[in-house]
């Protein structure tokens, strides 16, 4: 068993439920990676305030701005898909059928995009307003 075996397994076992699982993990790992950095940078307000100013100016760069928009997508998707899993697991396990799973994954993505797009427009317009400043 290795990483290669696992990835081949993922590739062969296609299906929306499986994609939801993979994306849930990737989004979660992305958020926790940012969270470690974010806790440490915010802690700088107490430990080293000058470092906090540097961190914030870095976050204001367009590259980080785009990263932030992707981060919000990860938070929205991971949160909604997580609630879906919690509802299925804890409240109604009979929903764990291939059919219902696939339909609910599609709905999870529709709601994710409906919530994310306006957020992305707001955040994107903030980036554009501050270009070059």
């Amino acid at each position: 068993m290795s990483f290669k075996t696992a990835m081949e397994g993922y590739a062969k076992y296609e299906g929306l439920g499986n994609w939801a699982f993979i994306l849930h993990r990737l989004a979660g790992l992305g958020v926790i990676l940012f969270l470690i950095i974010h806790v440490l940078d915010t802690a700088a307000v107490y430990f080293k305030p000058s470092l906090y100013a540097d961190a914030v100016s870095l976050y204001r760069s367009p590259v980080f701005g785009i990263g932030e928009i992707i981060l919000v997508l990860c938070v929205i998707y991971h949160g909604l898909n997580g609630l879906r899993i919690i509802y299925f697991d804890m409240i109604n396990p009979n929903l764990w059928t291939i059919e219902i799973n696939r339909k609910s994954v599609i709905w999870t993505w529709i709601i994710t995009l409906v919530l994310w797009l306006p957020a992305a427009v707001v955040m994107g317009s903030h980036i554009i307003e501050h270009l070059g400043s």
Partner: peptide, 21 residues
């Protein structure tokens, strides 16, 4: 979600500094 809505979307990083914190 409340945290992200306030800090990332409504307030935004351009308005966040040590005085904000």
């Amino acid at each position: 979600w409340i945290h992200v809505l306030i800090q990332d979307i409504l307030v935004g990083v351009y308005n966040i500094d040590i005085n904000y914190v």
